[in-house]
Simulated assay, not measured.
Amino acid sequence: MAKIKLIIDTDPGIDDAMAILAAFNSPEVEIIGLTTIFGNVRTPMATQNAFVLLNLAQQMQVPVAEGSCDQLNGLTKTRVADFVHGAEGFGNTYQQLVEGKKHSLTAAQFIANAASEHPGEVVVLALGPVTNIALAYKVDPQLRTRLKEVVILGGAFQSNGNVNPAAEANILGDPDAADYVMEQGNNVRLVSLDVTHQVEFTSKDMDALHGRGRFGSFISDISKFYIEYYRKSYGVDSCFVHDPTAFAAVFRPDLFTWQAGKVLVLTEGVARGMTIMDHCVRNWAAPHAWSDRPLVQVAVAVQADKVAPMLLERLAM
């Protein structure tokens, strides 16, 4: 079976690092590029952190295309999740910076070009706000037919958000971009907090990674800050595995239960960033804001007992 050609749009980030390094230990995928975006850190630092991860994986040939510093509406994104991931994204471990050369194309142009060169083969895994993906759709109006799939870590449908009761962090990072992407086609899949809150790594899991494989010690070290955040915020001795779970959905979608629906993202008001799905189980009496939207696939359940150990195994290789 041919490998999945994968672009990871990322804001590394501790759990981004887990997902990216697990991907490099996964024979099912070929990472053809990293594109960077704000979220856990600002975009320039996301780019720096991408090179740190590529160097750790001995994959410096993988291109890194820097993405937008601004939201789709033109406003500069300034708030980052340093209280979750540390000031530099890797749990305040202050990894040595790696010199790397950014790709000449922007992230949006890189995504559009890759899909044009490999029509029907490229999957984009979006681990942060989806600004770059929205911009790529604007760069190439045919992108919706050329991409194989866009898998997005984002949203909350049956649970509260993780920034406030209404909104999940990646969607709230750029609600206008998220809403625009929801309008683009039938090849979008959402992996929301409804399922990622079911997949956990315990502090014992993270300690046990130390000294194992190429990445175990790095993941173990950066995760201490991450687990401490969850200990304070949720009262658990573990962390939710958001980004790696979204990566698992790329190559093992069979471990998830999917529901088709039409998704709208609120772009203003107190519930800005909230994701609302029409489950399409009834005929409405009149047209509404969801009516003309395409179906997307939303993960509503996950076999966490299989996903968590599978991901830990990839990180320990």
Rank of each mutant, 00 (worst) to 15 (best):
I4W: 02
I7E: 02
P12G: 04
I14N: 07
L21D: 04
A23T: 09
N25M: 09
S26M: 11
E28F: 11
E28P: 07
G33I: 01
G39R: 07
R42G: 10
T43D: 04
N49Q: 13
V52D: 00
V52F: 00
A57F: 00
E66Y: 06
N73C: 11
T78V: 13
A81L: 11
T93I: 01
Q96R: 13
L97R: 15
V98M: 00
T106W: 02
F110C: 12
N113A: 15
E117L: 12
E121R: 04
V122L: 09
I133L: 14
L135G: 01
D140I: 14
Q142E: 15
R146Y: 05
E149M: 14
V150C: 09
G155R: 02
G155V: 05
P165S: 03
A169S: 15
I171C: 13
D174Q: 13
P175T: 04
P175W: 01
D176G: 09
Y180C: 08
Q184D: 01
L193Y: 00
H197M: 13
H197F: 07
K204R: 12
G211K: 03
G213S: 01
G216Q: 05
I219K: 02
D221M: 08
I222R: 03
K224N: 13
I227V: 15
Y229I: 01
R231P: 08
C239S: 08
C239W: 02
A249M: 11
F251I: 11
P253H: 07
A260D: 15
V265I: 15
V270I: 14
D278N: 14
A289R: 05
S291H: 13
P294T: 15
V298N: 06
V298R: 03
A301Y: 07
A301Q: 12
Q303S: 15
D305F: 06
V307F: 04
A308R: 06
L312A: 09
E313V: 04
R314H: 01
R314V: 01
